[in-house]
């Protein structure tokens, strides 16, 4: 669904990404981990069109989109949840949702058909904060709003740039579970994470970026079986066994109300 091939990109003449290649299968989570400055956010920005690549290809559903303007890439089915959330501070939650659900966003071929009621069913906390402005929300609420905004664009591919950054552990767990559920519901996810444990819990495949190059790209099951290899690569303590799947309080108030497309998870 998302194919990145020999991608080179950077800023002001300097190259950050060096021939990065990734092949993200439909309805899976591809995590990209790496240290600060490894090029993770540069990768997300380039795929989203916010940064023009120096060379290489980016394909969404087989269509080459590298070098296109960000609004064209968004319309081809790419949703962005950026680092730091970047919700609009002057708009209320209701206005965010109304703007995100605008008619120009409803035509992505193969998109999921997200609607505001469906989003509020998935993220009931937002329903209680409809009149609050973006800058009046907690970090977790802002993250949910950023995800809601991206989903209402009917994406086929969701780019998440450190969605758990700055969140309390329980909120971070909810976000990870939501990401996993979205992938099981059919969405293709590129998840950039600095925390290996966060990535390893939810990903189907994990890549490691080091100085702008992919130095590891294996199924997550391999990483889970032998987490020491990855940990050594990232110079962090080995991660333990991923916690067992658990219900997520707050995301779905009652398992019976969980949306159909997520129940299989």
């Amino acid at each position: 669904m998302l194919r990145v091939e020999r991608l080179c990109a950077g800023y002001a003449g300097g190259t950050v990404l060096h021939e990065v290649s990734l092949d993200v299968r439909p309805a899976t989570v591809q995590a990209v981990v790496g240290r600060n400055g490894a090029g993770k956010s540069t990768l997300v920005h380039t795929v989203a069109g916010l940064l023009r690549p120096h060379a290489g290809r980016i394909e969404i559903g087989g269509v080459q989109v590298a070098g296109r303007q960000p609004h064209r890439i968004a319309r081809s089915g790419v949703g962005l949840v950026p680092q730091g959330r970047r919700v609009f501070s002057r708009l209320t939650v209701a206005e965010h949702l109304a703007l995100a659900a605008a008619p120009w966003r409803a035509a992505t071929p193969g998109g999921e058909g997200w609607t505001v009621p469906r989003i509020l069913e998935l993220l009931p906390r937002l329903a209680a904060r409809l009149r609050h402005r973006g800058d009046q929300l907690s970090g977790g609420e802002q993250q949910m709003l950023a995800i809601a905004r991206a989903l209402l664009g009917q994406p086929r591919v969701l780019l998440l740039d450190e969605p758990c950054e700055g969140l309390a552990p329980d909120l971070a767990a909810r976000v990870r579970d939501l990401v996993g559920a979205l992938a099981r519901g059919g969405l293709t996810v590129l998840l950039v994470e600095q925390q290996l444990q966060h990535a390893i819990e939810v990903a189907d495949r994990i890549a490691v970026l080091e100085y702008g190059r992919v130095v590891y790209d294996r199924p997550a099951a391999e990483a889970r079986a032998d987490p020491g290899v990855l940990a050594a690569m990232l110079s962090v303590a080995a991660v333990g066994e991923p916690p067992a799947s658990r219900p997520v309080p707050g995301l779905w108030p009652d398992p019976g109300t969980r949306p159909d497309h997520l129940r299989q998870g």
Binding site: Q69, P70, H71, A74
Partner: peptide, 21 residues
Amino acid sequence: GMLVRAAVDDAEMVAAMGVSP
């Protein structure tokens, strides 16, 4: 008007939502 206020805040994110700058 919402688009105007959103663009004042973060024009890049408005573009990433599919709106042509």
